[in-house]
């Protein structure tokens, strides 16, 4: 495997390998000295065409823990604003002799386009409304940590599925592992994902019944003006997660959110801060998963 452009492109075996490797890296992260020399001498470029603090920080830290040389390239300081094409940008970067390109871009398929045109390994850190594969991998890792496996779990994904690359990657991953996926949200924000064995609920209370996992998605305020829903108040009333609704799920259900959260819009504060929320653990696991992905793409062996 040269690139990680999406979960769609991965087999179940490849996903399992990543998750097992991540588990070893998580042990490393528990040590006093968290840095390993695994990828010393390798160069990584973080190419972020969209603002992002969380994902970028997580990648950057993962890269440093693996002892790579890190080059950051973000839009405001780049030549992209001067009208350079993406093709020319990546060709220039490739000329530096980089080994990894981590890319976030607002156009779906941009990582695929780059992967076709460079020798370096390309890692998709989120492309348009297509995929965010490392997020889905860390979500799977987090669920397995709590529930043992994915098979047969009732997993509710709630919110703006149409525009969520996190939701898309999760749907592809969970459907490969036999989870029961429920999509919950207003009809305007649920795309046709019928090929991936999902059940759709417009009524949140119904969709949450006996859920093992509740994945909340971030609502983007600008969707309101585009007619996807009338107001954030109405949205929260119908598809926001509060304590009453959380009680409809299984007693030991876990609550996830890729962050950053809109408290009071898609999730109430008491839920976000409750014992059932594993939102902060997701962040830690993200580091281990991203280390594992880079390690494996560099062609390193099966054991850490």
């Amino acid at each position: 495997m040269k690139d990680l452009v999406g979960i769609k492109e991965l087999s179940r075996n490849e996903i399992e390998l990543i998750l097992n490797t991540a588990s070893s890296f998580k042990d490393v992260l528990r040590r006093d000295i968290k840095k390993v020399p695994a990828l010393r001498g390798k160069t990584v470029v973080n190419l972020f065409f969209e603002p992002s603090t969380r994902t970028r920080t997580s990648f950057e830290l993962a890269e440093k823990r693996l002892s790579t040389d890190v080059l950051n390239f973000s839009v405001p300081t780049s030549s992209v604003v001067k009208g350079e094409s993406l093709f020319d940008t990546i060709k220039t970067i490739e000329a530096y002799g980089v080994d990894f390109i981590v890319i976030r871009h607002s156009s779906s398929g941009a990582p695929h386009f780059i992967a076709r045109n460079v020798i370096a390994s390309v890692i998709n850190a989120g492309d348009g409304i297509n995929e965010h594969p490392t997020q889905a991998l860390l979500d799977a890792f987090s669920i397995i940590e709590k529930k043992g496996s994915l098979e047969g779990l009732n997993i509710a994904i709630v919110g703006d599925i149409l525009h969520s690359r996190v939701a898309k990657s999760n749907i592809y991953l969970l459907s490969k592992f036999g989870a029961n996926i429920r999509l919950i949200g207003p009809p305007t924000l649920i795309p046709d994902m019928a090929d991936h064995n999902v059940e759709v609920f417009y009524e949140m209370d119904e969709g949450l019944k006996d859920a093992d996992v509740i994945m909340m998605l971030r609502i983007q305020m600008e969707r309101q003006g585009k007619g996807f829903f009338p107001s954030t108040m109405e949205y929260f009333k119908n598809w926001g997660l509060d304590m009453r609704r959380l009680k409809l799920a299984k007693k030991d259900a876990i609550v996830m959110h890729p962050g950053p959260m809109n408290r009071g819009i898609e999730i109430s504060s008491d839920v976000a801060d409750s014992g059932q929320s594993i939102i902060l653990e997701q962040v830690t696991n993200g580091l281990a998963v991203r280390m594992a992905v880079m390690y494996l793409l560099s062609g390193r062996g099966e054991n850490v």
Binding site: K8, S108, G109, I129, N130, K168, P191, D192, M193, D195
Partner: peptide, 11 residues
């Protein structure tokens, strides 16, 4: 617009 566009993340 259809299943393929949803799957490719293209509008």
């Amino acid at each position: 617009e259809g299943r393929l566009s949803a799957q490719m993340g293209l509008r």
